[in-house]
Amino acid sequence: MRHLSEKGLDQAIEEAQEADEARLVRRLCFIKNLYQGDTREQAGRRVGISRSTTRRWALAWNDGSVEGLCPRFGGGRPPKLTPQQWEELCEIFEEDQPWTPKQIHALIEDRYNVTYHPAHLSRKLREAGMNYAKPRPMDPRRPDDADEILADRLGQALGEGTHKEEVEDEPVVLGFFR
């Protein structure tokens, strides 16, 4: 069916391009190829689709014009936790820290009767602005005056006490010392 003139079809393609609807542009180009005399198979080959898809797109065009070709997305699977439950969970994590990954999984399962794959849960936590972190205690071998020792050694490495011109000519090298 010719729901639009060729000029109207070109305008629909332009509007879809401006709206950044690449999938709709491709479908409309398929229809344009049909308008120009291609068979369904030829038009499908030009836009890179299978024969079965050419049939579906042609039927969608015949039934609903441009609106019939608009890709529809059902929204995907609903989230396991509602936004309110997720917010409550994040507040719990912020209040009672630190949490181990096992404790987080156990809390979610006990409280909401829901399980998440560890990789997915870490993605969701990062999206919420949270990250796993390991608290590190101070090294018991660290001397009390470690900052002073570091400053002294850096001073020695940078050649404190030499003439300013000499220091500027030589490259600065920083490193760790034992």
Rank of each mutant, 00 (worst) to 15 (best):
K134D: 04
R56P: 09
R111P: 02
A22L: 13
D38H: 14
Q42E: 15
Q103E: 14
E14P: 01
A16D: 05
K134Q: 10
W61E: 03
Y132E: 02
H3P: 05
E88A: 13
V172A: 05
R142Q: 12
L121K: 00
A60N: 11
E109D: 13
W99Y: 00
G75N: 06
Y112D: 03
L107F: 14
K7P: 00
F30D: 04
H120A: 10
Q156S: 05
P78A: 09
T54N: 08
L107N: 08
Y112P: 03
H163Y: 08
G129C: 02
V167Y: 03
E95Q: 07
L4K: 09
P137S: 13
L154C: 08
T39G: 02
E168L: 06
E41V: 15
D10V: 03
L89K: 00
R2V: 00
A157E: 09
I104L: 10
R141L: 07
A106L: 12
Q85N: 10
P71T: 01
R51M: 09
E165G: 02
P79C: 03
R136G: 03
M130N: 05
Y116V: 01
G44M: 05
K32N: 12
D139A: 00
D144G: 10
P71D: 01
Q42V: 14
L59Y: 08
G37V: 04
Q156E: 11
D145F: 04
K164C: 08
T53N: 10
N62A: 15
K80H: 11
Q42N: 11
W99L: 01
K164V: 11
W86R: 07
P83H: 07
G175I: 00
T115G: 03
A58V: 07
D144V: 11
M1K: 11
H3E: 00
P135S: 09
Y116W: 00
A16H: 02
Q42D: 13
G64R: 05
E91C: 12
